[in-house]
Design a protein around this nucleic acid. Structure first.
Length: 829
DNA sequence: AGCACGCCGACT
DNA sequence: GTCGGCGTGCTC
């Protein structure tokens, strides 16, 4: 018997073994197969192939009892003759499943394009006997038969929503021959989009029986004469020529209508490319075309030459490119990409969030044209599917994408660039909880490629790796055109409160600077990393605060919506007029967010054109692009926003950046709080003064002496790294140790603590080369109605820690499904 | 995940 | 007495 290992879409489950039935040839690794799984038929991906002599069956049940009930089943069908996922991507996904302790199917799913999974859907239909017998039945059996009466085919899933326990009822009805159950597959193996295109036939070109044609039809012929490639019926419809006109012409033999496969082009409607200059390119140049003429600084040139030499070796090499904001990293990426492409290998450029950093994507698109594909979550399913297919076919040799693009099916990768490698969005906060940057390094190693991690504020992990010699460190100390860094002024808000009163939000210094900018017609950005109008609603009579019923946080006031909303589960209530507890009418709002800043700025500067960018105002797709384009064009004076405005774009007219509460986040019980604050402040200060005029930044804080704020204001990365590393070593946090965070969810607080405690105990006894901390209630002790407790496992041997943890969890299957395992967590909230 | 089994509280 | 809630187990 020939056996294969298959990854199936089941959380936490390893590969399953199936047999290949006689008459089918072995599918290759990476091919999709349809396999039976319990009562269902699902799509799986072949991860290993082997004959009876191979090791492949070693995970099969060994005990006689188990073997008798679950011998390998034969697969049902093979969907792809060739590998759907390239074998190296299957290997990479296997590594992810292992390292991040998730199911193989989850890791494989992360590498798959949308619409690639086909599953069976269970359908039920009443039989003639069922119709005849209906009235003699009672209760649930009658209810189900009644719903099926009339002969329509109904999906069991839909039925299950309105009838509980429908599965058992259907099974018994089927046994009695009253219903038929079928399992048709839903979805198609190929999710391409086809359009109908009309072209002229030879007859239509030459002899026209003009007299017999209507005006619309004649117009259609005219249009087609000018378009030898044809015109889609949708385009005709837009010009008021209905499809029927073309169909009639086709009947006359004048026009041919064919179905053509088309690509959904994510660049189609993008105006980003024309609007923005790349963040790292100097003002004065006008877009990607200028690249050829652009002369590298000596620093850039040296960095480029070093990296190009590494790429030419065609062997794994990792480099950390530490360049201050505005030092021209993008230009180096671009030239490296060009060199690697010319050497015949392909290039992957990873960016944190394309919606926020369109410039880098745009410059690559401009430089490499149709050989570039783009992959990110902002695309529609269809667009993503088509882009993925282009890459898989080899029509593309440069891919620009977000973290999931690390699994892109490019062949023969020669270069992976991870831009802004420190960015938290590279870490996926749901299973598989992988870090795109770290997976990129693993992929580069397997592919024999150069991987370049770029940042102005490298993560502690990457910088430590560079210092340890695992990555080559390349530094760009100077900005292009020798432009000065922004002048940063710290405002101590404790002093401001002492002289201006406790309600002050915008300091005197910031107000004065804003007024000066408005007078001079320059632009300003104001950053506060917190949404909403007020952070707390508080009763002055009884002290009660308005809290989320599902989560352990207070509700944030959103004034425009007249609601108070939870930022974790989105629960919201109308703003109350009186206290829910004592009925007192004296409700006070404390704290502030971006909505309040916008409100205050409008009041303070009524003539200024102010706009706000945060998740509340930018819900629509493309809204942020449009607003940032307006700002770039100079049609706004002040942009208020959360960290969404801190990244990517380059606005040369901005000469002032104000940071309202630089210490938001420092209060959080998260070991990365200082690092995140340093990164945000450095990035935002880098936003100011990117044009001809020098920039200024004003940073308001309650902790002017905190090292993350002090070093960010001086843009002194080295000093920050030293202080932060000392803190991490003292507290035994990454990168000085490996960390695994285990969160257990339960309905009751005590149950969560007990269950987490059981895991902690099992990890301590007999223990190993690691330390276990906890259990403790998670910082967000209650989230979406569930209580959460967590433990930390710290040590230097990540593999041993993970293996021991999985052994513990496998012994408690009922606990495992309520447990989140986060290896190398970004955030421990 | 999805499906089934099995065991306790509220209805005919 | 049955119905149906969800806690637990399993998927080659």
């Amino acid at each position: 018997v020939r056996l294969i290992a298959v990854a199936v879409p089941v959380p936490g489950l390893g590969p399953l073994t199936y047999t290949v039935p006689d008459g089918l040839t072995d599918p290759p690794v990476g091919a999709r197969v349809l396999v039976p799984l319990g009562k269902r038929v699902v799509t799986g991906v072949v991860t290993e192939i082997g004959g009876p002599a191979s090791e492949i069956g070693k995970d099969l049940p060994t005990s006689d009892v188990r073997a008798s009930i679950s011998a390998p089943k034969p697969l049902i069908d093979i969907l792809d003759g060739d590998a759907f996922l390239p074998a190296p991507v299957v290997q990479l996904a296997s590594w992810v499943a292992d390292y991040y302790a998730c199911g193989l199917g989850e890791a494989i799913a992360a590498a798959m394009p949308p619409r690639a999974w086909i599953e069976s859907e269970r359908h039920a239909r009443i039989t003639d006997a069922g119709e005849a017998w209906l009235l003699r039945e009672r209760r649930a059996r009658r209810d189900v038969l009644q719903r099926l009466s009339g002969g329509r085919v109904v999906s069991v899933a839909a039925l299950a929503k309105s009838v509980t326990g429908v599965h058992a009822v259907l099974a018994s009805l089927q046994k009695d021959g009253l219903v038929d159950l079928t399992q048709p597959l839903k979805g198609a193996a190929d999710a391409s989009r086809a359009v109908r295109v009309a072209t002229l036939t030879a007859q239509g070109t030459d002899d026209l029986p003009e007299a017999r044609l209507g005006a619309r039809q004649q117009q259609a012929i005219e249009l087609l004469r000018a378009a030898p490639d044809g015109i889609t019926l949708a385009d005709f419809a837009r010009n008021d020529i209905p499809a029927e006109s073309l169909e009639r012409l086709a009947k006359l033999g004048l026009v041919r209508i064919e179905r053509r496969r088309v690509e959904r082009d994510p660049f189609g409607a993008s105006y980003v490319a024309q609007t923005f200059r790349p963040a790292d390119e100097p003002a004065g140049e006008t877009g990607p075309k200028a690249c050829a003429a652009y002369v590298l600084t000596s620093e850039q040139q040296a960095a480029f030459e070093t990296l190009a030499a590494r790429a030419a070796n065609r062997a794994y090499h990792a480099a950390l490119l530490h360049g201050v904001t505005g030092s021209g990293k993008t230009e180096i990426y671009l030239r490296l990409a060009r060199a690697v492409r010319e050497a015949g290998r392909s290039v992957l450029l990873m960016v944190p969030e394309i919606a926020l950093t369109p410039a880098v994507a745009a410059i690559f698109r401009a430089a490499f044209g149709a050989r570039v594909a783009i992959q990110h979550s902002g695309l529609s399913e269809g667009e993503r599917y088509d882009q993925w297919q282009r890459i898989r076919r080899g029509d593309v040799d440069v891919v620009v994408g977000t973290r999931s693009a690390v699994f892109t099916p490019l062949a023969d990768l020669g270069l992976i660039v991870v831009d802004e490698e420190h960015d938290g969005s590279y870490k996926q906060e749901e299973s598989p909880r992988y870090h795109g940057r770290d997976v990129a390094v693993v992929r580069a190693r397997a592919a024999g490629a150069l991987v370049v991690l770029g940042s102005a504020t490298p993560s502690l992990e990457s910088y430590a790796n560079a210092k340890a010699g695992r990555y080559e460190l390349i530094v760009l100390k100077r900005r292009v055109l020798d432009r000065a860094m922004a002048d940063v002024q710290i405002v101590d808000m404790r002093q401001e409160y002492a002289t201006e009163g406790p309600d002050v939000i915008l300091s005197r210094a910031l107000r004065a600077s804003l007024a000066a900018r408005l007078e001079r017609g320059e632009q300003a950005m104001v950053l506060l990393n917190r949404r909403g109008f007020a952070t707390v609603v508080f009763c002055r009579e009884c002290g009660e605060t308005l809290e989320c019923p599902n989560c352990s946080v207070s509700l944030t006031v959103h004034k425009a919506a007249h609601r108070a909303r939870c930022h974790y589960c989105n629960h919201s209530v109308l703003l109350p007029k009186q206290c829910g507890k004592c009925r007192g009418p004296f409700l006070e709002q404390l704290g502030f967010g971006t909505e309040r800043i916008e409100h205050d700025l409008r009041a303070l500067f009524p003539q200024a054109r102010v706009a706000r960018v945060d998740r509340d105002t930018m819900r629509r797709r493309g809204a942020i692009d449009a607003l940032l384009a307006t700002f770039a064009a100079g049609d706004l004076d002040v942009l208020v926003g959360t960290q969404m405005i801190a990244k990517g774009h380059d606005f040369p007219r901005v000469t002032l950046v104000g940071v309202i509460s630089a210490d938001v986040g420092l209060g959080l019980a998260d070991f990365r709080a200082a690092e995140r604050t340093f990164q945000l402040l450095t990035q935002v200060a880098g936003r100011s003064g990117r044009g001809e005029r020098p920039g200024e930044a004003i940073v308001q804080t309650l902790y002017p002496n905190h090292y993350s704020i002090r070093h960010a204001c001086r843009q002194d990365y080295e000093a920050f790294y030293d202080d932060e590393l000392r803190f991490r070593q003292g507290m035994r946090y990454p990168p000085s140790v490996a960390l695994i965070n285990v969160v257990v969810k339960a309905r009751a607080r005590a149950a969560a603590m007990d269950d987490a405690g059981a895991i902690a105990d099992a990890m301590r006894n007999p223990g190993g080369p690691w330390k276990v901390l906890g259990p403790a209630p998670a910082p967000l002790g209650r989230l979406k109605g569930e209580h959460r407790a967590q433990i930390f496992i710290k040590g230097t041997q990540r593999n041993a820690m993970r293996k021991a943890l999985l052994t513990v969890l496998d012994g408690r299957p009922e606990l495992k499904r309520r447990t989140i395992v986060d290896v190398d967590p970004m955030s421990v909230l």
